[in-house]
Design a protein around this nucleic acid. Structure first.
Length: 272
DNA sequence: TATCGTCTCGCATTTATAGA
DNA sequence: TCTATAAATGCGAGACGATA
């Protein structure tokens, strides 16, 4: 478990730079640098880290003490442990990356790449990278010169190819054994790439919870134009916390009913 | 390495909950 | 214990695709 935690933290750190300029802020008058993590969370994390450091310091002192005692004991037992010393600890085999070597179906050609393919096919193969780069530049210029109607025709040609590719990709991701997508994404994050997702079919989606139901109701019954989703979420969160159990009841009941329906449709496999 | 169009992902925020 | 996911939305970043 600890090793999992140790692995996860740097991963998250790598995936999320500490600062970012949030698009909503940049759209307004002020351009500010926003810390991604909410202050509360950061504080909580810092406290956790402090406690962890303290605990670590304690254990280190303890460990040092035990080492000393051990050292004393070893002087007496020096003759014996040769065999033990020879015994090299078995090298722990690294866990196999179950996601390695997977060929993830792509998203299909874009109009330009489709055009580029045809453009290249009409010419003899480029013999060196310089020639190839020049060809790409020429193709770009040719694409820009193309009449809009022609571009649209190519875009239409490409539509079924992209739809088929998207379908194949979704099917591939959905068909992955449990844990494979997780491992795949772990590697992608390490490489600085984005994670892969798939759209859960509507029938398989988890039911919306009571709070989300309340938020939807709030949106439907209040004028929220001009408010950002973040502002709405803050408002509804505050309102929700201030609501009595009786006020929450209809949303909770609806959520429970939806949950029951979902559970009935998705019976859990009994563990052997 | 180059080109450009398309589109996914992440982010902001909330709570509840399932699963790793 | 941590993460992802349900919902909303709109923008920016960057992956992807096709080719030698």
């Amino acid at each position: 478990m600890l090793s999992v935690l140790r692995l996860r933290l740097p991963l998250r750190a790598a995936a999320r730079p500490l600062f970012q300029i949030h698009p909503i802020q940049t759209r307004g008058l002020l351009t500010s640098v926003v810390v991604r993590e909410p202050a509360k969370k950061v504080e909580a994390k810092a406290t956790k880290a402090k406690t962890a450091t303290k605990a670590k310091a304690k254990t280190t002192t303890k460990a040092k003490a035990t080492t000393k005692t051990k050292a004393k004991a070893t002087t007496k037992a020096k003759a014996k442990p040769k065999k033990a010393a020879e015994k090299k600890p078995k090298k722990k085999e690294a866990p196999k990356d179950i996601s390695r070597g997977l060929k993830i179906p792509g998203q299909g050609p874009t109009p330009f790449t489709h055009f580029f393919k045809q453009y290249c096919a009409a010419l003899p193969k480029a013999t060196d990278p310089t020639e190839f780069v020049q060809r790409a530049k020429d193709a770009g210029a040719a694409w820009r010169d193309l009449p809009q109607a022609e571009k649209e025709r190519i875009a239409q040609d490409v539509l079924p190819l992209r739809a088929a590719a998207r379908e194949a990709r979704e099917e591939f991701l959905r068909g992955l054994e449990p844990g494979v997508l997780f491992a795949l994404n772990k590697r992608r994050v390490l490489k600085g790439k984005t994670r892969l997702h798939y759209t859960t079919p509507e029938a398989d989606r988890r039911p919306t919870n009571s709070f989300v139901r309340f938020t939807l109701n709030y949106r439907a019954t209040n004028d929220v134009s001009g408010k950002t989703p973040v502002e709405i979420a803050k408002t509804t969160g505050e309102l929700w916390r201030g609501m009595s159990e009786a006020e929450k009841a209809p949303f909770v009941a609806a959520a429970q009913a939806a949950r029951a329906e979902y559970d009935a449709a998705h019976p859990k496999e009994e563990s052997a």
